[in-house]
Simulated assay, not measured.
Amino acid sequence: MPQITIDYSGTMENAFDREGFARALHEATVEIAAAKPEACKTQFRPSAYTAFGYEDPGARGHAVVHVTIGLLAGRSDETKARLAETALELLRKHVADVAFSVHASAEVRDLDPSYRKFDR
């Protein structure tokens, strides 16, 4: 915990500073949600195919990025909202200006009570 997943359009590959974003998001998660730095884990999942509205996907005029942050239960709605807003601010800083539209969203949710983990 926290479990962070970033799904993004592959068209953003060269415009997305993933390393810088992950570091900044981990720091924000520690500050805002009282997570331990060593507990922050992020996976980036590029998508080869993104469809947007009725646009021909081959036009590649839009890109999508969605940040999901899973935390152990107990954080207030205000804390979760602040972390989601911060994630969006950080995306603005870590995605370069591009010739296509970028649609970004973030969600902070409680991990299910069944959540378990192990470390080796």
Rank of each mutant, 00 (worst) to 15 (best):
residue 48 A to S: 12
residue 48 A to H: 12
residue 31 E to Q: 11
residue 39 A to Y: 08
residue 37 P to C: 03
residue 54 Y to Q: 10
residue 11 T to G: 14
residue 32 I to D: 09
residue 37 P to E: 01
residue 69 I to N: 03
residue 43 Q to Y: 12
residue 59 A to D: 02
residue 47 S to N: 14
residue 46 P to S: 01
residue 67 V to Q: 06
residue 96 A to E: 13
residue 37 P to M: 03
residue 64 V to A: 09
residue 30 V to S: 03
residue 38 E to K: 11
residue 37 P to Q: 02
residue 17 D to L: 03
residue 100 F to M: 08
residue 30 V to P: 04
residue 98 V to D: 07
residue 78 E to P: 00
residue 88 L to N: 14
residue 43 Q to V: 11
residue 71 L to C: 06
residue 56 D to E: 01
residue 75 R to G: 07
residue 88 L to K: 12
residue 91 L to Q: 04
residue 65 V to K: 13
residue 102 V to T: 12
residue 11 T to K: 14
residue 100 F to W: 07
residue 58 G to C: 00
residue 93 K to R: 15
residue 44 F to P: 00
residue 85 E to C: 13
residue 64 V to E: 08
residue 13 E to A: 13
residue 97 D to G: 11
residue 67 V to I: 11
residue 42 T to E: 02
residue 89 E to C: 12
residue 9 S to H: 06
residue 48 A to Q: 12
residue 92 R to D: 15
residue 73 A to H: 02
residue 52 F to K: 02
residue 75 R to T: 09
residue 81 A to G: 05
residue 41 K to P: 01
residue 76 S to M: 09
residue 16 F to H: 00
residue 84 A to I: 10
residue 7 D to Q: 13
residue 12 M to Y: 02
residue 24 A to H: 04
residue 21 F to Y: 10
residue 62 H to M: 05
residue 20 G to K: 14
